[in-house]
């Protein structure tokens, strides 16, 4: 059984990480865009009001002002819903932040189908693709609240832009404070030699559940948490391909351009093995209960199991 320590949304990990950083580092500055409570940056605002700005519903100015604060020597974090911060302000992120390699950290909340009833307009499913193609940008997709907090804290260790993708709905907490976390270094959660399941974000827990189901079928799966999509831990991916000979990727994101694509790019250049991708199949989401949407769009443990069975036939 996968050990679970609680059930709470990753957004609170983002907020906790900011408060922790704010206490230690007077250069931390946080900017929001009218969604400060729902993306959980309000606690920072209450504690450090002189290092907090709410720019209103204006995402391009959100990123532009953060760029200015970085030029002024601060370490600005911005956050709002992932669709808006990554999409509406994409060119500001590209041309102002990344091209100048400014020290701006971007939190994209409300990621994935799990946003539920708000429907497709608010379900961010493309951010990994449109952020990871940007030079200088690092992209982190933490798997639970604890890892999100660590991602926030680690993001200030390196100078330059970082995008952290997190969510609104409660999800299982299954990593601990002492679970290793290093940007760019994937974690092997379960070892196995038959197939490697490479997952990020909410799908890491599903991958662990899938491994349990597979074990009952006599299939030993390796489960890798690739919390950093960029820079990808190529070593661990290549080693998994060599050892297992077949890979399944799992992400709560569009199939095109996300984790599955990033892993495949590494494989085709280094050690090509059959890959199956679990993700949203080139479609928009819709309104519904988060759990029902995850089932409907094929983002549950059983979908990973099906993908494993399929990829094993191609081995």
């Amino acid at each position: 059984m996968v050990e679970v320590f609680g059930n709470k949304a990753t957004r609170f990990g983002f907020g906790e990480g900011l408060v922790e950083l704010g206490k230690e580092n007077p250069k931390i500055f946080v900017l929001g865009a009218d969604t400060v409570s729902s993306v959980a940056i309000n606690s920072f605002g209450k504690m450090f009001p002189d290092r907090f700005l709410n720019v209103g519903i204006a995402e391009t100015n959100l990123v532009g002002m953060a760029a200015g604060l970085a030029i002024a020597g601060f370490i600005p974090f911005v956050s709002t819903y992932g669709v808006f911060v990554s999409g509406r302000a994409w060119e500001q992120i590209r041309t102002t932040v990344c091209y100048s390699n400014l020290n701006v950290k971007i939190g994209g909340s409300h990621s994935g189908l799990m946003v539920g009833p708000d429907g497709a307009t608010h379900q961010a499913l493309e951010e990994i693709a449109i952020m990871r193609c940007l030079p200088k940008m690092k992209v982190i997709v933490p798997c639970d609240l604890v890892e999100t907090r660590k991602a926030v804290i680690s993001s200030v260790c390196c100078d330059g832009p970082v995008y952290i993708r997190y969510g609104r709905e409660n999800t299982p907490i299954f990593t601990k404070d002492n679970t290793p976390f290093e940007i760019g270094k994937a974690n092997i959660l379960i070892d196995g030699k038959d197939v490697a399941i490479i997952a990020c974000g909410t799908m890491v827990y599903e991958a662990l559940m899938a491994a349990e189901i597979l074990e009952k079928k006599g299939i030993k799966a390796k489960v890798i948490n690739v919390h950093t999509i960029k820079p990808m831990d190529e070593k661990i991916v290549i080693a998994a391909a060599k050892e297992c000979g077949a890979i399944v990727t799992a992400e709560e994101h569009q199939i095109y351009g996300g984790l599955g694509s990033a892993v495949s790019e590494v494989l085709v250049k280094n050690f090509a093995v059959p890959v199956e991708m679990v993700g949203v199949g080139d479609k928009f989401g819709e309104s519904g209960e988060p759990i029902n949407l995850m089932i409907k769009y094929g983002l549950k443990d059983i979908n990973i199991v099906d993908a494993v069975l399929k990829v094993l036939k191609r081995k």
Partner: peptide, 13 residues
């Protein structure tokens, strides 16, 4: 259209 936001950010800092 980007400069004024950048300037505003520096000024706020």
């Amino acid at each position: 259209g980007y400069g004024l936001s950048i300037g505003a950010g520096i000024a706020a800092g």
